[in-house]
């Protein structure tokens, strides 16, 4: 049975708006508009054409600007093979750690986290526009988020103990430290994700997804869903190995809609791998957790498009001026 128009019409309108924003790369539009302007000026000054006629001739000479803009959008969205390889490496390293059962050895974990921090820091400063940087950044930020969440959780537990009148084995300095660490860790994550979503929300999702998967994997393990530690390692090795291919495909694809499709599909698939053997309560919790990034996938471009709509309007008439 088809959905009534009252439901589909607003969704369609929002989707069209979001897609329009995704295609409206102002830099590209501006460049193409400048080109037409340059040709118009040449025709006016070198051939003596009136400005209106010169503009029409410049537009005609350009061909189909929409086709050119679409082609450019695809090229700009598509990562090179080097980007693809670099983007897949961090997830493959995590997969390797799980597969070789080194994921519970402190030196390996610290080494991998440090590697992710160094490469993502270099990447942010030297190649900030490249998608692969965000794949590394995600694993670099996971310890930051973990420290933040654990600090806040232990602070909450300690505060609860105080309220209940239980014994509190904490001095004032540790209270300040744990609250500070907690707020700093979570604050850094939120600030970064808001910034990334505004800049390019697909990059934002490349940061969010691995963090979510790692958090879920640890949560599931903590809940005792696996019979043996080897089983947990194998399970997660497959999960992160598959995720490396998802990242690679996302970086290589030129079409943003396909990227959205791949990222959104990755979530339920990852959940299917993770949730095997879990009880129903955990499955619901995991579903909610895994659904959050999917929800962001849908909401973020709309938020960005609404935020930037005014700026686009300011520019677009400029591109069509005579």
């Amino acid at each position: 049975m088809p959905f009534p128009n009252s439901i589909t019409a607003p969704i369609q309108a929002l989707t069209i708006h979001a897609l329009a924003r995704l295609r409206a790369r102002r830099s590209v539009l501006r460049e193409l508009a400048d080109h037409i302007e340059d040709r118009r000026d040449s025709l006016v000054h070198e051939q003596g054409l009136p400005p209106g006629e010169a503009y029409a001739a410049a537009v005609r000479a350009f061909g189909n600007p929409r086709a050119v803009a679409t082609q450019l959008e695809r090229i700009r969205n598509q990562g090179s093979w080097l980007d693809v390889a670099l983007g897949a490496i961090p997830s493959l390293i995590v997969s390797f750690l799980f597969a070789t059962h080194r994921w519970y050895e402190r030196e390996w974990i610290i080494g991998a986290a440090l590697l992710a921090m160094v490469i993502s820091s270099l990447g942010v400063f030297l190649f900030s526009g490249r998608a692969w940087v965000y794949s590394w950044l995600s694993y670099a930020l996971f310890p930051v988020l973990l420290v933040g969440v654990v600090s806040l959780a232990t602070t909450g537990y300690a505060a609860w103990s105080v309220l209940e009148g239980s014994h509190v084995a904490r001095d004032p300095a540790s209270w300040v430290l744990s609250i500070g660490l907690g707020l700093a860790g979570v604050g850094v994550m939120i600030t970064l994700l808001v910034w990334l979503s505004k800049k390019d929300w697909i990059h934002g999702m490349l940061v969010v997804l691995p963090i979510t998967l790692l958090a879920v994997a640890l949560l599931v393990f903590d809940q005792g869903a696996y019979d043996t530690i080897t089983q947990a390692g194998t399970h997660n090795a497959i999960l992160f190995g598959a995720f490396a291919f998802v990242v690679a495909a996302t970086i290589r694809m030129g079409d943003r809609l396909l990227k959205i499709g791949v990222l959104a599909t990755a979530l339920p698939l990852a959940f299917l791998i993770i949730s095997n053997g879990m009880d129903i309560g955990i499955r619901i919790a995991v579903t909610v957790l895994v659904s959050l990034p999917a929800l962001l996938l849908i909401i973020a471009p709309l938020v960005v498009s609404i935020h930037d709509a005014e700026a686009d309007e300011r520019f677009e008439p400029d591109a069509q001026r005579q």
């Binding site: 460049e31 193409l32 080109h35 000479a61 061909g63 050119v68 082609q71 450019l72 700009r76």
Partner: peptide, 10 residues
Amino acid sequence: KEGTLYPALH
């Protein structure tokens, strides 16, 4: 043509 130049540059 522009349709050749800009995709190549990008």
